[in-house]
Nucleic acid binder design. Structure first.
Length: 576
RNA sequence: CGGGGUGUGGCGUAGUUUGGUAACGCGCAUGGUUUGGGACCAUGAGAUCGGAGGUUCGAAUCCUCUCGCCCCGACCA
């Protein structure tokens, strides 16, 4: 492709609304443009890379035996009502009506659509297992679109759905997908870590997220054990059980005045008692029911764990007014002592606490020397604290590390969650009707592209892994008014192109060498062939490796083979 | 939705405090000179200063309303 014949509007300065590096570089390199918040157009270069990611995904999906289909983006309200998600998704769904007033949505995901297909077509266990996948545009009216392609409202997703006759079958289907995901990201040049995850709104029991470590663009925190490899989303990370602690002598409970001390820090400082001796009491509303959650003063409550412990669907912190009316005291002075009619859930670590401090349910007062069972009782204990860096690994006991990650993919073992709701059954070997056992598997294609840039860039621009680069080689003739340079450039361009290599030639004759160098580094094609001074002086081409910055001079006659070899080596490195 | 910020040629900004009729760099067009790390000279095009209303002799600037966009939080590929 000739640069003058395509469209690569590079920018010297990135638009001010771009914050993270991938967003800036995608804009600067002329790969995408914004149309509205969270809505982007792909330009020729960006589209080429996007298609390459899709191609890798297709190849790996097809290898697993998954079948590509394409569901519509517009889906009727009825199937969403069967699963109850028309309301659960709420405002995040783009909803619309046709001229007759029938309601539809732009699909934010496709469990309903695929189950609707399966229940109509799959009748027998003999047809199972089956996995369908599609690469399609999804629509989610995000609360806050962010970071360019990272969190868009219209985005391309690969979503796959497996149907099995048994749990063991699901385990196999899941493992196939899991391994395919590892290969997909590897081939894209991404370093991903599969972490244990909470299954969130999609539902199900087992779930993994594939995350790329990124301090600046990461949106989900996860813990990682450098010793045994345990990795889990912060919402799912298990808290290690603490060892037995020596029991303290119970002291007499005592109400003390704590004027103006509301937060854990303030109370701790005012009473001169360490935070570990305080109990944090937090009132939550779970599916309409109030719950008082207790965690150690130096711990943070994990809302997702609390919700899951109680099998809840919706969890909200109680409002200041609700706290006042339910507890009889303001936020900052509530505690479990004397509480009736509200379920009390405590973190396991509370069991190891003696003579601690809690709010007294009276504004401006706290109790000191509170003790479990003597002063109050708990309805249930559970793991409801948020794991912190430095905590013990729940598997091996080593110290956990905490990272920020970009979630590029997620897999779920759904079980019969959707098939039951939509009454999707097959006839099993034993002649009985059973619900399909499902898994679902998603990859954010645009987000993957952005994550690749987050991982592969320098101050000059993008350093594309060869597998997803818009072109494999860029020929850069530095002086278009020099006949020799143009002739040699054209020859190598034609030779490479006709041997099946994707080549871009910067044939602009109205820009200086500096502009060509800078644009080449910005758009980040992995191999640059620079035709200029070296050719005039020594008759040689300069081959530059964008990633390493390494340059070698080589005779034009040997260039074709040399370039082919480095390209092959680059692909091999990604396929290992 | 809550909190913070911002909107001035295509991009990046100045001007807003203290009202006086839009400036700078890059880019763009034409001609010429250049060609190894964002060249130079000359000429030129391009902005109702996000929008609406108001105050004023006069508004980018002050007031009211409104819209867009970005960042932090809840949600997620």
């Amino acid at each position: 492709m000739r640069l003058t014949k395509t469209f690569v509007p590079t920018l010297r300065e990135a638009p001010q609304d771009a914050e993270i590096i991938s967003h800036k570089l995608l804009l600067k390199a002329g790969m995408i443009r914004k149309v509205a918040s969270g809505i982007y157009s792909f330009l020729p270069l960006g589209l080429r890379s996007l298609e390459k990611v899709k191609k890798i995904i297709r190849e790996e999906m097809d290898k697993t035996g998954a079948l590509e289909v394409l569901f519509p983006a517009i889906l009727p309200k009825e199937i969403w009502e069967e699963t109850g998600r028309w309301n659960i998704y709420g405002n995040e769904m783009f909803k619309l009506k046709d001229r007759k007033g029938r309601e539809f949505c732009l699909g934010p995901t496709h469990e309903e659509a695929v189950v609707d297909l399966a229940r109509g077509e799959l009748r027998s266990y003999k047809e199972l297992p089956k996995t369908f996948y599609q690469i399609q545009t999804k629509y989610r009216d995000e609360l806050r679109p962010r970071f360019g392609l990272m969190r868009a409202r219209e985005f391309i997703m690969k979503d796959a759905y497996s149907f099995d006759a048994s749990m063991r079958g699901l385990d196999k289907s899941y493992e196939k997908m899991f391994n395919a995901y590892k290969r997909i990201f590897k081939r894209c040049g991404l370093t991903t870590i599969p972490i244990e995850a909470d299954s969130g709104a999609i539902g199900g029991k087992v779930s993994h997220e594939f995350v790329v470590i990124s301090e600046k663009a990461g949106e989900s925190e996860f813990v990682y054990c450098p010793k045994c490899g345990y990795a889990a989303n912060i919402e799912a990370a298990k808290s290690a059980k603490e060892g037995e602690v020596e029991k303290e002598e119970f002291k007499a409970i005592n109400k003390v005045s704590t004027p103006d001390a509301k937060t854990i820090n303030e109370v701790s400082e005012f009473l001169n008692i360490p935070k570990e001796k305080l109990v944090k009491s937090l009132l939550y509303k779970i599916d309409g029911e109030f719950v008082l959650a207790l965690v150690k003063g130096d711990d943070e409550l994990n809302e997702v764990k609390l919700k899951n412990l109680l099998n809840g669907k919706f969890i909200f912190p109680a409002t200041a007014e609700e706290v006042k009316s339910v507890m009889g005291a303001s936020v900052g002075s509530v505690g479990p002592v004397g509480v009736k009619n509200v379920k009390i859930i405590a973190d396991y670590r509370i069991k190891n606490m003696f003579n601690f401090v809690t709010g007294a349910n009276e504004d401006g007062y706290h109790f000191v020397n509170v003790n479990l069972n003597r002063d109050f009782s708990v309805d249930a204990f559970g793991d409801i604290r948020t794991v912190k860096a430095g905590d013990s690994c729940p598997k091996c006991g080593a110290r956990l590390e905490v990272y920020e990650g970009i979630e590029v993919g997620q897999t779920f073992k759904l079980g019969t969650k959707y098939s039951e709701k939509m009454n999707a059954k097959f006839l099993d070997k034993d002649g009985k009707e059973k619900y399909f056992i499902m898994g679902c598997y998603g990859i954010g294609v645009g987000r993957t592209l952005a994550a690749i840039i987050e991982e592969h860039n320098d101050k000059y621009g993008i350093k594309w892994p060869i597998s997803v680069a818009p072109f494999e080689v860029e020929v850069v003739p530095l002086n278009m008014s020099d006949k020799t340079i143009v002739e040699v450039s054209e020859k190598i361009y034609n030779d490479l192109t006709s041997s099946g290599i994707e080549v871009l030639i910067d044939d602009r004759n109205d820009v200086s060498a500096g502009v060509k160098f800078n644009d080449a580094d910005l758009i980040g094609i992995p191999v640059q062939i620079i035709v200029g001074r070296a050719l005039k002086r020594e008759g040689k081409l300069e081959i530059k490796n964008r990633d390493s910055g390494e340059k070698v001079l080589i005779e034009p006659e040997s260039a074709l083979k040399y370039v082919k070899d480095i390209i092959e080596a680059k692909y091999n490195a990604l396929n290992e």
